[in-house]
Amino acid sequence: MSIPARLNEVLNELPAIQARPAGARRVRVDVAPQGLPALLELLKGRLGFIHLSAISCVDWIEDGQFELVYHVWSHEMKLLVSCHVRIAREPGVYVSVHDIHEPAGFFERDIHEMFGVHFDGAPSMEKFILTSWEGPPPMRKDFNTRKHVEETFEWVDYRPDWLKDIERKGGGIES
């Protein structure tokens, strides 16, 4: 496994980029936040990375960062390049790449809703899934699902006969 020469050539044109192979037909590229749009443009224009498969967001709360991963596929090279950028968790603002890859609109809107990252220039930052949700962006690591559930819902207190019988004899559900 190595990085194809054509890809290396293109990557070398950009500053502050680290690339390494990450398995069969996978290349991982780490890039500074300001360099990502140029990278995506270049990959798209020169090597046919026209398909934005997904944008993933990871909340590295202990580092105070969000990691955004742009998975782009080239039908031509048969290669998936995952471009990783790290942005500050606060204020959590980044630029939209909607103008380069139209599908970005969907993923950016989703990440905004789930992580609270705002994408400047995105076509829509409106809610899509959590229309009635007033709380914090739930995919953030500091949102505790279990706590939310405990506070919101109640456990069913089953009282079947067999349990009553066991309780009469001194047994019961263990905590």
């Binding site: 498969s53 997904a54 993933s56 967001c57 990871v58 909340d59 991963v69 998975h71 139209e102 599908p103 609109g105 969907f106 993923f107 899509f128």
Partner: peptide, 28 residues
């Protein structure tokens, strides 16, 4: 369909991102 999974070396996933196959054609 895409599954992006991040492990931080623990017993559970640190992050799972599901790129539903319908993400594009069900919305935009």
């Amino acid at each position: 369909l895409g599954f992006y999974i991040v492990s931080n070396g623990g017993p559970r996933p640190y992050r799972v991102h599901v790129r539903g196959a319908s993400s594009m054609h069900a919305v935009q």
